[in-house]
Design a protein around this nucleic acid. Structure first.
Length: 735
DNA sequence: TTTAGGG
DNA sequence: CCCTAAA
């Protein structure tokens, strides 16, 4: 009897291989998420509104000083600027992915049968919303640098984001997500909502770049390696990319004073998706939100840069104008720099200059702000490199126009109020954007995991034929949310709440990478402590959550990721690995109390990548072993999928591979002496059954094979009658 | 996707 | 548990 239905809101965009394939397939049959019905749009708008409050509230706060560069202002107003601008030191330009899709989840009768009547008749708030999507990720992948330019498929739709208003923080300002620092009352939220739905839509039209440009939607490049996402078919999420990023890789021109090549390269492939205003809004907001965090948290080294940004974008009046203006902040702007257009289609990478700071990929490359501040910022290592490559400039300049916000899931009771939904969404978004991010580097669609490689070794150099250099934002296992910041995040555990981890037992895994990986149940236990009643005990979809204690309270999160030597590719997902693209995401990176988490003695320094992606070890209980043995007795040893469905269909974390492996170990255990066995002792009775079943089914298999041989000579036999292994699930061979 | 088997 | 060849 279902006492309380829960709704899942999927912010699809960040993919975590948390749910094994088998589980996924099982989920297909019994979807847990509600279908997206006719009210999806309104629900979406709701989310958009919620997200909108994140930034708008913030933006309405007293902006800091600033003197928006007049040049920039005018640039913003010229939305369709085709000409490349020399705006290196003026602003950070972001380009968002403007494409989104609302993808109704599959219609599964089984699923609907699980829904309450109210839900079935479409009254439910059956919304599964997703911010950002694998699709967008895919598109990231599709970015190609071809002959000195990056073909940005998103270009057609991307809207440039002038992050000005969002980065208008004073240096002392701590990361404090919009209004997320306090839990809004329902009334407040409602009020905000009204304002958002109305004003946001008006002031933040997030115009479709297509319209702006009058260009048709772009389409993902024909690059076959880029698989179109198919989240809609198996994952009942509405997915919409929050943000796209553009990376511009150009080699540095000899003349650093030039802001780079001024030849615009409007070559952009149309995108296939149809943008929707609503999610554009969200996306943009989130994107901006992210960047606010990012810029805000730059470390001191780039304070100048920050200041510039601030001064460039902090002007509230400008922002107002932008918001109300037709073209709003998402001014179209060209950021690709090419030496020459003719060069862009063939030959080698043309020279050009990016006036934006470089991404420091392995911690050795320098971040060049030469164009912006006359700061060379060239590291000695690079200098050395240059010596050895004095024939050319060893610098790689990258321009990242925008990032997308990782995916997150939200689950909330049906009985929850809209206000609480808003808060929940906001908190989740805030947590994500609040610092739990890391950066992955992708080259030619594949993650570059070796942080020790140089750019040159990796193939990222200006005179190489570069193909799709990309960056991805992923929840960062090594960064906690800025929970110590003034006001703190709503997700921050109150300091007087005892660390719940101790009570989590095996549900919490302390990883060597200074992080704590806990299971869903544990997560909800934690969250229950934070917000009683708000986080139901049975999370359902959420598989596992990682908490990461941080020793850096109000950290310059992004500063870290920009400079970090850490393996930021350690994210639980490799979004460009097919197979993983389908995996289920989960990312709620609540900002737990830093003190609390810091109390956990964990070692820092370790390969986050492996740790982060590896599933938690979950030893089989005796009951599970019993179920497994029973199922195998009936089904045999070669039907692990059936075993899974029969005995472990509800155990989402047990895949048929797991079961097969467990059987393997059980068999091994049964064959060794009891003295050699380790771990929780398995009753000898069960082990005997294992041996018996194995023996039996081995014989069956042999028998079947022997029968099949003559069968080929006796075509009149019905092969399905031969062999008992695959006839009937209910037959109990071993009786 | 599932199975099978090595790591 | 992971990885992956093979089916």
């Amino acid at each position: 009897m279902v006492l309380q239905k829960r709704l899942d809101y999927g912010f699809n965009g960040y993919q975590v291989p948390a749910i094994p394939r088998a589980t996924r397939s099982a989920r297909k049959r019994v979807p847990l998420r509600k279908r997206v019905e006719g009210n999806q749009i309104s629900a979406f708008d709701l989310l958009a509104t919620v997200a909108g409050t994140l930034l708008l509230d913030k933006e309405s706060s007293p902006a800091s000083n600033n003197s928006w560069n007049a040049e920039d202002q005018s640039a913003v107003e010229k939305n369709n600027v085709k000409e490349e601008r020399q705006d290196g030191d003026q602003s950070l330009k972001l380009e968002t992915c403007n494409v989104s899709e609302l993808v109704p989840q599959t219609n599964d009768p089984n699923y609907s049968s699980r829904e309450s009547p109210g839900l079935q008749n479409g009254n439910q708030f059956g919304v599964t919303s997703a911010i950002s999507t694998s699709e967008c990720l895919e598109r990231l992948d599709s970015q190609k640098l071809i002959n000195g330019k990056i073909k940005n498929e998103m270009g057609g739709l991307a809207c440039k984001v002038e992050t000005g208003p969002f980065v208008s923080r004073t240096p002392g300002d701590c990361v404090e997500p919009v209004s997320e620092n306090k839990v809004l009352t329902d009334e407040e939220l409602d009020r905000t909502n009204k304002a958002s739905t109305g004003e946001v839509a008006d002031k933040c039209p997030l115009e479709d770049p297509l319209v702006l440009d009058g260009k048709p939607p772009a389409v993902v490049s024909s690059d076959s390696s880029i698989k179109a996402p198919s989240f809609g078919e198996h994952d009942p999420f509405i997915s919409f990319p929050v943000q796209q990023y553009d990376v511009n890789v150009v080699s540095r021109d000899d003349d650093e004073k030039s802001s780079g090549c001024t030849h615009p390269s409007p070559i952009r492939e149309p995108f296939r998706s149809t943008p929707r205003i609503g999610d554009r809004r969200i996306r943009k907001i989130l994107a901006s939100r992210y960047w606010k965090v990012a810029l805000r948290s730059k470390n001191a080294t780039y304070s100048n840069y920050d200041e510039n940004l601030k001064s460039g974008y902090c002007n509230r009046s400008t922002y107002k104008r932008l918001r109300s203006g037709r073209n709003f902040p998402f001014k179209k702007r060209k950021f690709l720099h090419y030496t020459s257009e003719s060069n862009s289609d063939g030959g080698t990478i043309s020279e050009g200059i990016s006036d934006l700071p470089e991404k420091n990929i392995n911690g050795k490359a320098s971040i060049l702000y030469s164009k912006m501040h006359g700061v060379t910022g060239e590291s000695s290592s690079l200098a050395d490199q240059r010596k050895s490559f004095n024939s050319r400039d060893p610098h790689v300049k990258l321009r990242i126009k925008s990032f997308r916000v990782p995916e997150l899931f939200i689950e909330i009771p049906e009985s929850a109020t809209i206000g609480s939904l808003k808060r929940t969404v906001k908190e989740a978004v805030t947590a994500i954007l609040g610092g739990g991010l890391c950066v992955g580097v992708l080259l030619q669609g594949k993650k570059v995991r070796d942080d020790n490689k140089t750019l040159l070794q990796t193939g990222i150099s200006h005179d190489n034929q570069m193909d799709a250099l990309g960056f991805s934002l992923e929840p960062n296992p090594s960064h906690a949310s800025p929970s110590l910041c003034p006001g703190g995040s709503p997700l921050t555990l109150p300091h007087d709440i005892p660390l719940p981890l101790a009570s989590l037992g095996e549900e919490a895994n302390f990883l060597s990478d200074n992080s704590i990986l806990i299971h869903e149940a544990a997560w909800f236990k934690c969250m229950e402590l934070v917000s009683p009643g708000k986080y139901p005990a049975n999370p359902g979809l959420v598989n596992q959550v990682t908490f990461h204690p941080s020793t850096e309270p109000c950290m310059p999160n992004v500063g870290n990721f920009i400079e970090s030597n850490n393996d930021c590719t350690a994210s639980p997902t490799d979004m460009f690995d097919k197979s993983t693209t389908e995996s289920k995401a989960l990312v709620a990176v609540p900002a737990m109390s830093v003190e609390a988490l810091a109390a956990v003695p964990v070692h820092k320094k370790s390969k986050q990548s492996e740790v982060a992606q590896r599933r938690i070890r979950r030893p089989f209980s005796i009951a599970e072993v019993e179920a497994l043995v029973q199922a195998v007795e009936k089904l045999g040893t070669g039907r692990w999928r059936d075993v899974k469905l029969r005995a472990f269909d509800n155990a989402k974390h047990r895949t048929y591979v797991d079961l097969k492996d467990k059987w393997k170990t059980l068999l091994h255990t049964a064959r060794i002496s009891p003295q050699q066995r380790r771990g929780e002792p398995v009753p000898q009775e069960l082990l005997d059954k294992v041996l018996n079943a194995h023996t039996y089914w081995s014989q069956q298999q042999a028998k079947q094979q022997q029968q099949q041989l003559p069968e080929s000579c006796l075509p009149h036999y019905n092969s399905t009658m031969i062999g008992s292994g695959r006839c009937d699930d209910d037959e109990n061979i071993l009786g």
